[in-house]
Computed example of a mutant assay.
Amino acid sequence: MAISLQKGQKVDLTKGNPGLKKIVVGLGWDVNKYDGGNDFDLDASAFMLNAEGKVAEDKNFIFFNNTSSPEGSVVHTGDNRSGVGEGDDEQIKVDLSAVPSSVAKISFGITIHEATERRQNFGQVSNSYVRVLNEETGEEIIRYDLGEDFSVETAIVVGELYRNSAEWKFNAIGSGYQNGLAGLCKDFGLDV
């Protein structure tokens, strides 16, 4: 049975799941009834961060236009432009055993594509979540439902994987940004 997290909670990932090497981080959401005439296109991304909390190289920012880290340890499985349907809307696969030692954390975000132009924000999104699955078995290990705490935000850091000695842990973040993907990138040391 999956561990259900609240904002700010941290949980061990690999220590309690010996032999866990490959995971899938699934992100999902629904759009509230909204009469703006534009489709919602939400995007998942991963930032491979060094000990200072920054992305050392652009190629360590994984998203729909850069779907794999250089060594292949983090892979975005594809862009879902509508969020329609059941289950995860977008997924990012992580091979924990292949993540370079220079990477201390992997932060996961969801952003609204062209949010300003389309006058959209996370107040118009519901049922958003992040979950961590064992890639080999499909078993859900961790789930974090973000709730409806967002109104004007156009980007959310949903959670992060981080190293603790030889083990990996997961932290439920749930932190919103009003300046979209550009704001996330800036905070993580990237110029867009």
Rank of each mutant, 00 (worst) to 15 (best):
I142Y: 01
V55P: 01
N17L: 09
N60I: 02
V103K: 05
F40Y: 14
N171I: 02
G72Q: 02
S175P: 00
D89W: 04
D43M: 07
R131Q: 12
E167H: 10
D149N: 15
S69K: 03
F188E: 13
G123K: 11
A2M: 06
D89M: 05
S82V: 08
E114C: 00
V125E: 09
D79F: 09
D191L: 07
V125N: 02
I142D: 04
Q9F: 03
S151K: 15
V152L: 11
L20I: 08
L96D: 02
V24K: 13
G176E: 14
T14L: 09
L190S: 11
R119D: 11
D191G: 06
E52C: 04
F47W: 10
S68D: 00
F64E: 01
G123D: 12
G180D: 12
G138W: 08
S165A: 15
E117M: 07
Q6M: 03
A115H: 04
G183A: 13
V55N: 00
R81Y: 05
I112L: 07
Y144H: 09
G16S: 14
K59I: 11
D95L: 05
R163L: 11
D12L: 11
I156L: 15
N66Q: 14
L13Q: 07
L49C: 07
P70M: 01
V158I: 15
V24E: 14
L27S: 09
D35H: 07
N121E: 09
Y129E: 05
T77M: 08
L13T: 10
R131W: 03
L96A: 05
K10C: 06
G72S: 00
F108E: 00
E148R: 12
A98W: 00
N171F: 12
V94G: 01
A115N: 03
I92G: 00
S68V: 02
